[in-house]
């Protein structure tokens, strides 16, 4: 199997990750928390109204998880393309 390990291909892969993660970011905050908040409020989980929960709690949890996933994905990608930094940058 041949694979393209050029800088351009690294960048393309990065942009792919970004578009997926930012779509989720948009859906939970602007989607669930703002645009569809009233529809989701008809669903209840414990004492929470779901739309209200997304707006005041859920979106923030998802934000933290998204960054976590991005850090892991990029760590793997950097190694795959051999562009990861060495320990202790001498500069």
């Amino acid at each position: 199997m041949t694979q393209d390990y050029s800088a351009a291909s690294y960048w393309k892969k990065n942009l792919q990750y970004l578009s997926i993660l930012l779509s989720v970011w948009f859906i939970v905050s602007y989607g669930c928390g703002i645009l569809f908040v009233d529809q989701l409020n008809k669903i209840r989980i414990g004492g929470f109204y779901l739309g209200f929960w997304f707006a005041q709690q859920g979106a923030i949890y998802v934000f933290v998880i998204l960054i976590g996933i991005y850090v892991q994905l990029m760590k793997r990608l950097d190694r795959q393309y051999n562009v990861h930094e060495q320990e202790a940058d001498p500069s």
Binding site: S6, Y10, N82
Partner: peptide, 11 residues
């Protein structure tokens, strides 16, 4: 755009 200065083209 790339973490390390000169990316090497190998896995």
């Amino acid at each position: 755009r790339i973490p390390r200065q000169e990316p090497k083209s190998q896995a």
